[in-house]
Amino acid sequence: MKFFINGVGLISPQQNTFDETFLNNISGIENKYYQNKELNYKDYLDPLVYRRLSRLIKTNLVSAKMCLKDSLINNPDAIIVGTGLGCIEDTENFLIGMLENNEALLSPTQFMQSTHNTISSQIAILLKCHGYNNTFTHRSFSFEHALLDGCLLLKENRHFNILIGGTDEITEKLYTIIGNIGLTKNNNRYKQIAPGEGSIFFLLSNNQSIKSNAVVRGISTYHKLKGDNLIVESFILEALEQAKINNSEIDLMICGNTGTPRFDKIYSSIADKIFPGATIIPYKYLCGDYFTASAFALALAINIIKYQRIPDGLGSFANNKIINNIIIYNHDKEIDSSLIIVGKC
């Protein structure tokens, strides 16, 4: 597998400029949860077009446009989005309206925008893109499966430039519910990275161009059934074998640590066992914990490979050593494990 990433569009709790200064100044968490850096939508979208769209959809339209601009592509052949929870704000508003008003006086706009595929289809409407369009909604695999689907399309040779996105949003009410079920810092059960959000797009292509930043070399996901033993080591080794890459060729591990020792220890354990020479960088403290946070990790990996440096403050790296291959490893309570392997072009 070797597919080129020819563009990135990023809106996240960190700076939105995706260049050699990315993450030189890291923004800490300002609120109870990580929120996207706001931007002026008027600079990117026609007010008439975006007037009824929710924050999540607007953010994704902008991120998609940024990505296309970065890749010098006007119209992709396909659009695939991964989102764990979809348009939460519209879902909440419609649901609460329905419950409070006894199923009367309900806004069709909110319902219409609550479906998960609204993101990918609004992008298609904006671009007038009639190509393949799909949305994956499988928790922490959502983005990986969107990326995998894109790779399959390229392998099938019917498409050449694919816009792939990973996005989720956090709202006050969602944060409250997450807290109530015991998954935030306020509750003493976990010391966790706070929830976050992001809208990140990539242009995946069969063709190398002057804009090519990195290549995707492998994607793997593994769901552990209840009662099964975790076989992460063999899962990772299998993925490396499929990507035709030796574990010694991995220079960097970008890991989804969430600040919970019980679940984080596997990252260092795997690093010791399989990637002893690699530098480890956790990423969720930069963007928050959410189902499609691995899209942020991929953006980080691409930035590192493109500029051949790790942003200040993220970690140390031997000078003049070339960063050839990066593995992004995330797991959700050891039940869902996922890998993305990225390399230099």
Partner: peptide, 16 residues
């Protein structure tokens, strides 16, 4: 997947 004991690739699509 849990009930049927499916251990291979599992995923979900949602396009209305």
């Amino acid at each position: 997947a849990e009930v049927l004991k499916i251990r291979g690739h599992i995923s979900t699509t949602s396009t209305a």
